[in-house]
């Protein structure tokens, strides 16, 4: 049973696949972060703290942007994987984005994204194998139902500066009350903030 998901996002070349895996209660966050910092080439992944991810779409939006920027030769960070982490950011501070969204020693839930490109191909099975052997934690389905339990809404609102107004004060005219709708609202605001990275007023 494959928990690793392989996606081909709309409007990206079929040669660029996105592999995504979600892990709960990881024990070796420090070690994993160290691999990244050392530039260990076996660990070319986007390691994302799942606590700051609202939904699957939130993560995929960052992946789309990063791959798009890769194709347009516009990466601002080291590689497409670090770019995915950076793409989650509402501003252009790369170092800050790693601290906020990337893996840290205190990360307990981890989202991993691997981009397969023609120059660096990565098959799903290889990726899964490597993750299974390297990540000390429980792999869970990469689905909103699981993610939503990991989300730290307050932290997300703080990072994306969504605390004043934020649609909460005024009626939106939508069917209110359901938690799903609140999450959807949060998601679109986050997407907007990401799209406007560095150019908000």
């Amino acid at each position: 049973m494959a928990l690793l998901q392989t996606l081909h996002l709309e409007h990206l070349p079929s040669s660029h696949a996105i592999h995504a895996a979600l892990y709960r209660d990881i024990k070796n966050a420090t070690h994993l972060q160290q691999q990244l910092l050392n530039g260990n080439t076996d660990f070319e992944y986007a390691f994302i703290d799942a606590g700051v991810i609202v939904s699957k779409i939130h993560a995929l939006a960052a992946a789309y942007r990063a791959v798009n920027d890769l194709l347009e030769n516009r990466l601002r960070s080291r590689n497409v994987h670090s770019e995915i982490v950076f793409s989650l950011s509402p501003n252009n501070n790369i170092a800050e984005s790693f601290r906020r969204f990337g893996i840290t020693p205190t990360t307990t839930n981890l989202l991993i994204i691997k981009v397969s490109t023609p120059t660096s191909p990565a098959a799903a099975s290889e990726v899964q194998e490597h993750l299974t052997s390297s990540i000390e934690g429980e792999q869970v389905p990469f689905e909103d139902s699981v993610l939503s339990q990991m989300t730290d809404v307050a932290r997300i609102k703080k990072i994306y500066k969504l605390n004043s107004g934020g649609g909460g004060g005024k009626k939106t005219g939508q069917v209110n009350g359901a938690k799903g709708d609140e999450r959807k609202e949060l998601e679109v605001l986050v997407l907007g903030a990401m799209a406007l990275r560095g150019v908000t007023n």
Binding site: A61, Y64, R65, L162, G165, G166, G167, G169, K170, K171, T172, G173, V188, L189, L191, G192, M194, A195, L196
Partner: peptide, 11 residues
């Protein structure tokens, strides 16, 4: 953000 009914920006 302010609750005005408009399309959301995706990218």
């Amino acid at each position: 953000r302010e609750g005005v009914p408009v399309p959301a920006v995706y990218a």
